[in-house]
Amino acid sequence: MKRLFLYRLAVVAGAIALLEIFCLTGVIDKITMQPPHLIARDLYRLLASGRMNGAIWKTSTNTLLALVLALGVGVVAAALLHRLRALRDTLDPLFATYYAVPVFAFYPFFIVVFGLGDLPQILIAFMLGVVAMIVNTLNGLDRVPPVLLKTGRIMRLTPIDTALRLTLPAAGPYILTGVKLAVAYAFIGIIGSEFILSRGGIGYEINFAYNNFDNATMYPLIVLILLASIAINTVLTRWEKTLLARRGAR
């Protein structure tokens, strides 16, 4: 475990050091990229100045909104589809090819329909996230051991009790996998659509800084997004692992 950690640390530290050396010696010129220590300094200044608070707030709330929608609709849709075998079979080709279709290609179309506001972005993020949630929840529901449900019937549990005490805990780890993917997709959806065309948010600010050759803003913001998504993903992966371990699945 410790060796793995050291290995990873060495890879990350090595990459940063290499960039630092390249930038300082001029292999990567100043217009292309600033050395990492300057990026870190700029990031600190940018956050301390509060100039980006509005953009950060906008991106976070939109992501959260899309995520909540994706999770809610995803779980309910999966629960329904689990009952309706025929509908599920019909939708199966859709789920199988869904992530092969560039959902972002719909973004221009949504802008035309809904105007250039928050709604198209939230819709894109929702569309990206919801199918991952449905597919993984279905997968979880399929794997609930029948003996549990039989036990529930013997104990005469109400449907709500069955769902809360049996189905949900049993399907939990798989649902969490869906949540993890949905979080990543929601974030990608919001940032991506902000980036392509929008009026605000971190993605927009990065694009704006890029168009103005403002590297002192662009790189820190990119790093901020990388750090945020890595942090969220790491926390969720940890949680997923502990859930799986408790189930003795691995």
Binding site: V11, I196, M218, I225, L226
Partner: peptide, 27 residues
């Protein structure tokens, strides 16, 4: 060793919004 160490890192990279990296590639 490399596989165990790098696989989670690659999975993490998979989850980041890669569009933000595009300006760097352009530069």
């Amino acid at each position: 060793l490399s596989g165990d160490a790098l696989e989670p890192m690659i999975v993490t990279v998979y989850a980041i919004p890669k569009l933000t990296l595009y300006p760097i590639l352009l530069l």
